[in-house]
Design a protein around this nucleic acid. Sequence first.
DNA 1: CTGAAAGCGCTAACAA
DNA 2: TTGTTAGCGCTTTCAG
Lengths: 365, 365
Amino acid sequence: MGKRPTVYDVAERAGVSIATVSFTFRQPERVKPSTRHSVLVAAGALGYVPSASARGLAKGQTGALGLFSFDYLRAEDAAGLTTSAAPADRAGVEVVRGGGGTDFRHFPLYVDEVQRGVELECWQRGYALLIGGGNQITSEAVVTDIAGRVDGLAIFPHTVPNDILDRLVHRIPIVAMSEPPHHDNLSHVTVDNAAGMRALTDHLIADHGMSDLLFVGRTPFSEDEARFRGFQDALRSAGLRVPRKPLSSGSERTGHELVADLLSRGPLPHALVCATDELALDIMDGLVEHGVAVPHQVAVTGFDGIAAGHIARPALTTVRQPMELMGRAAVEILVELITHQAEHPVSRQLPVKVLLRESCGCPTG
Amino acid sequence: MGKRPTVYDVAERAGVSIATVSFTFRQPERVKPSTRHSVLVAAGALGYVPSASARGLAKGQTGALGLFSFDYLRAEDAAGLTTSAAPADRAGVEVVRGGGGTDFRHFPLYVDEVQRGVELECWQRGYALLIGGGNQITSEAVVTDIAGRVDGLAIFPHTVPNDILDRLVHRIPIVAMSEPPHHDNLSHVTVDNAAGMRALTDHLIADHGMSDLLFVGRTPFSEDEARFRGFQDALRSAGLRVPRKPLSSGSERTGHELVADLLSRGPLPHALVCATDELALDIMDGLVEHGVAVPHQVAVTGFDGIAAGHIARPALTTVRQPMELMGRAAVEILVELITHQAEHPVSRQLPVKVLLRESCGCPTG
DNA sequence: CTGAAAGCGCTAACAA
DNA sequence: TTGTTAGCGCTTTCAG
């Protein structure tokens, strides 16, 4: 690693001033083609890599956007393995039966897709993307550190404590994704959770003639609550009995346990309407383990539209959030806020789409 | 957005010098508790967010690592949809039959998992992570830009042209992931592709008594080639006929086409040994469409160990790369290189694991 | 079209 | 323990 050359080195080698070097890179048209060329040659020969820190300091802008993601933990090839005794070892490579890979239940898979959207939009607009997600607890220092590195910040729901957010929101544009508005200066990208769930439930009732539906979800989560509301609306409109509360999928309960619990309570409902795809997938697994056929004995539906639900068998009927778009929209908003020095927060609600697949009893293909 | 306060503002408000402000954040123990406290109070009141640019410039280090990822394109809810006519519109929510979500075939899914590893390890070590991946072509400017923002860079295979790499490698530590060594100053994190495929093929031959195996993969890709070599080794050791070339899965051919082609050529082999999980999954779909049962009529195996293969039915037998570990290892190496100002590149090979699931004919569960 | 020069906000000697 | 001060490398007026 030789010392990194600076504008001074390049300027000297090209026989020009440092200003000209800077111009060559930032405002090429302002420099005479011949000098521009010699600067480029000098820079190339020296292996010049402009310092983003210096540029950022001089311009008062970093040119980067930030995404604060989950502080998830995933044990590689650990939990969730169906592993059993391994056959003979071959060529030093371990061989195991079944199992495998990341246990997606410990991680909200949809973030991958939202994140892709953020990445793509950032790059397209010439911004670099900084991904943050503190280790362990989300300390103020961690969030502040990344805030100090970017011109705008997108955050996933429930990742940054509100008091920290309150302070930051005065210093840098911040947009919260799929989190109901709760702070005056915060911009938002949301989705119509209630309408989506309402439409899905309508389908179950109208097209499949179901009347005994059970909603499963986490109670204190705003997204799940909005979805539950849509579920209730559908039942109410259909003149069916409207439950007060969803069946809670306590965070520690596995699908297997949930299903066992359900079976012990009496006959199954016509459908298990789940607040998320992951929950639905987990429950479908639990049903299989208990010998219950989906959708013949009970229909199961999800919400989110993650790829796994598409691959699962039966394929999961669900409400798809435009995840990539959410990420893109978040970036669009940030850029807007940054370039217009806007004072007021911007919010946008994206449409969802009901995807009828096999798990609700709809025909294959 | 009020003007962002600086050390000067904080210093003034706390009645100390800017150095003391800096010290309270960087070397707290060096400051008397009482003054430290008053500085913290002033900073909090002002909403002070230290500028990473200024710090980076002053220290000559950005405190961030970079990951250069793929320049992928994914159309939201576009390509790959099995969509057909939509039923009645409900509550403004579109309802479609089947289809859905991201079409994973257009994107090397394993990068998500490697990326997670990189993220986790970075955060754990207190580094920020910058994700880059130029739009359209990977121009020198794009790579250089991100190189100028970080202290070290991890790159996915085939994402950065070699000539650009050659220049950068002298200015900043770079580690290439799952790409065979090809540059003197480049560090590497690899996996034993050949041994893994060898072990998998051994299993097919020894445990399932198969003898007619066909390898499917992209020829000019080094990873696929190493895997093909392992495949050949297994056949050779078993005294079977060793094919010279794999069946090429030209990038444009879909699994459906590949299968059609295969069927037209005569009887199917005992197994289709695929170079990647995605290819295997695609081919399994193609086989289903053509009414061929897996694994009863033909076994199918993959390589990578992506989550989708776990969820697919039949579950995909494969060789799992420790993806998260690869990402982590890459970061470890970079940090090592950075802190020790090492002159020489470091490389590490990680072990793979054969996962026996359903698609090769192994019993369920 | 090019050069000179004044910062941008922070860190880290070095002094006090 | 705290303050003074000299840069870090680049951008950007303002002159020439």
